[in-house]
Every structure is written in C-alpha cells, then in structure tokens.
Design a binder for these strands. Structure first.
Length: 255
DNA sequence: ATGGCCGAATCTTTCGGA
C-alpha cells in the first residue's frame, strides 16, 4: 500500500500532473494541500472519470486539502476537533482506509513571527498535538501526512543561518513538532533514511531550485503500528524539475 | 539570500505563500 502527500499549489493548474504522477508511481492514496479552490471548483469529475475517489475540504483562493484514492475512503474528520468552532481555514482532512488512519495536513506558515499569524500557527499546532495524542488510542496504523511548515532540525535545511529566526525553524515551533513525536510518533523519513539530507520544498524565488537551496518541511509522522510495517519512505524530487511545477515535491511512504 | 516567483481574485494590482 503506497501513500503520498503533495502541496500542489493549485489543483486546477496541475490536475493532469497529479493524475500522471499517481499512475506512474502506483500511488493508492494521495493527500493534497493548497488546492486553492472551493469544493465545487475541485476537478472531482476529472478524477472520477479516471477511476479515482475524491474527498475535498476546500475554500476560496487559499489553503484547502483533499484526498485522492483508488479505493473509497471514510471521512473521519474535516477539521481539527478542538478548533472546529472557530476555524475558518481548510487545513485538515482525516480518513480511514483499509485499517489505516490517514490525514492531509496543512499547518499555517506563521510568518512574520511578530504577528497574529505566528500565534495562530502555535495555537494550530497545540490543537494538532492534542488530536494526534487522541489518535493514539486507536490500535491501528496512523499516518499524519502533509505540509507541516516545520524544518525539524539543522540538517533539514540548506543553511541554518537563513532560517534561524523564521517561523519554520524557530525553537518554540520545533519544540511543538517534537512534542508530537514524544507522544508516540516517528518521523518516517528519518526512521528509514538516517541523516540523509533531502528537501521537499524549493522557493520559486532566488533560483533556489538550481542552487539546491531547499528545505524539508513535508513529513510523515507515523505511530508504532505503522512503524511496525513500514517498507520505505522517499522524497520524489523529479516533479519539482518539470515545467510549471509546484514549489513542493511529493513525499511517498510504503507499507 | 547580490537579485531573480507564482497563484487566485479584487484582475495592468493586491495579497499570501515560505
């Protein structure tokens, strides 16, 4: 069973790219972030016609998450439960599929750090900490997948100095990411690949792709039931080098 | 970071992203 996650930066601009990639790579379940459209504007029919099921939590212009799958999934959450009353942004979808719990997560960026965007990120991560802990009560594999907007450690970016005061790497945010892990989750990429340095995002600006100025901010955090059966975890950097790419490249996990 | 982009919508600018 192969799962993937991809911040696609507009699904309507890149629906063919997504379809071709999941077919070529034999992906069973794909979580998308930054679809940047409302539910009605999602290319649901396009994926149905090509044999895939779709679950969408969209919003106008920004954010938005979705799940595309070969088999039908059961929607278990369309928002972080403790944020439900006050959350206007589409950043979380959770499904059950063939004994797995799978998510597509889009954590707020949080910059600049002296604004309410940063406090919103901290609050959002606190709600994710709580919910991820609740998910550990299920005695089955749980995969928290998505764009966490967190550079977990120094070796996850091309130059630590550039990021040291950024909302993606500042100590308090890294600590929240570690708190999720301490509760009972593993960073699947680290678990399988040791200290390998690979990136999942390269900025459109500054010629970052050509200079390989990247960061690793897209992650799979998996519980012990998932760690028991994991086969591999990779970052497929090829899509980032193609025409009209997203600024993120997909990550893949296999069981 | 010499400086360099890209997407949706408000559409020849603005805002958000990382």
């Amino acid at each position: 069973m192969k799962f993937a996650s991809w911040n696609i930066n507009s699904i309507n601009l890149r629906k063919e790219t997504v379809l071709n990639w999941i077919i070529e790579n034999n992906i069973d379940v794909l979580g998308l972030q930054e679809i940047k459209c409302e539910n009605e504007k999602f290319p649901t029919k396009f994926f149905h016609e090509n044999g895939y099921f779709v679950e969408v939590i969209g919003q106008k212009s920004y954010n938005g998450v979705a799940i595309i799958s070969k088999q039908p999934v059961q929607l278990s959450n369309s928002c972080l439960p403790s944020l439900k009353e006050e959350e206007p942004q589409a950043r979380y979808i959770e499904v059950e599929i063939s004994n797995f719990i799978y998510t597509s997560i889009y954590v707020p960026n949080g910059n600049p750090i002296d604004t309410n965007k940063f406090s919103y990120k901290k609050k959002w991560l606190d709600c994710l900490i709580k919910h991820s802990n609740d998910l550990l009560s299920f005695e089955k594999p749980v995969i928290l997948a998505g764009d966490f907007n967190v550079i977990p450690e120094t070796l996850d970016c091309w130059d630590e100095k550039v990021w040291e005061n950024d909302a993606l790497a500042i100590p308090i945010i890294r600590k929240q990411f570690r708190t999720i892990k301490h509760q009972g989750y593993f960073d699947a990429f680290r678990l399988l690949n040791g200290n390998k340095t690979e990136w999942s995002f390269w900025d459109y600006q500054n010629g970052s792709w050509n200079k390989d100025y990247g960061i690793r901010i897209d992650h799979f955090l998996i519980n012990s039931y998932a760690a028991d059966i994991i086969k591999n975890c990779t970052i497929d950097k090829k899509p980032r080098g193609k025409e009209k790419p997203s600024d993120h490249t997909p990550i893949v996990i296999e069981f």
